[in-house]
Amino acid sequence: MTLDVAPGAAPAGYPPIPLRRIVTTEVRKLFDTRSGFWLVAGVGLLALLATAAVAALSSDAGMTYRAFTTAVDYPLTVVLPVVAILSVTSEWSQRSGLTTFTLVPRRGRVVAAKAVACVGVAVAAVPLALGAAALGNLAGTSSAGIAPVWDVTATSMLTIVGSNVLGVLVGFVLGVLLRSSVGAVVAYFVYALVLPALAVVLAGSQAWFRTVQPWVDLRYAQGTLVDGTMTAAQWEHLAASAALWLLAPLVVGLVAVVRAEVK
């Protein structure tokens, strides 16, 4: 098949859809469904509860900005990957892809726009969470009558952004690979909850696994990211395990997304 335009055919009368437009539409699609709305509302609610819990339950010495940050960040790390998963899988499970891929037939552009949208939302959500944690810290310490402790450095704020983006990317890639909401969400929680436990068991009993773990265990490599003290070797570990967990499944999933029939 050639791309030649037949003689007499009208020249392209409309400019191509800019990627920016697809991205902003995909951001809107993250929040305009009932499930999207409740996911976002849920994050807000959980963050509020977490802040209140830290303020109410922690000792005076434990009531630091880091404690609030950790509490507020937790709902984000659970919900943001699910938002990313549903962004991709709903096109198949809800069959809205029939319209999406008819309006934008270059499916790779839709997937790219969804990736940008999800990462953008993750990056934007962290400052909001950090702000909420700061308010919690001020309110909690003032009601306890102690001076607020600001013990989160700019570097570790950046690593919080980084680890949230990584979690979103893992969810996103699982969505692209599996294209099923239930399958991808289950796979994500296996990845996030079961594999780390398995890795601990393996590392405790198998010497060979201890050697390769930094290279193949993305969450292990990511753990060092959260601590905020990355050596050159740790960056290499992160790159290697990210290639294994993100790049390889993304390539496989993308090929299938572009080729598969949309029904």
Binding site: V5, T102, L103
Partner: peptide, 16 residues
């Protein structure tokens, strides 16, 4: 083809 072009080659297919 639609108007001599493959659908996937239309720049903004929903307009056409």
């Amino acid at each position: 083809t639609v108007g001599g072009r493959r659908y996937v080659d239309l720049p903004d297919p929903g307009r056409e």
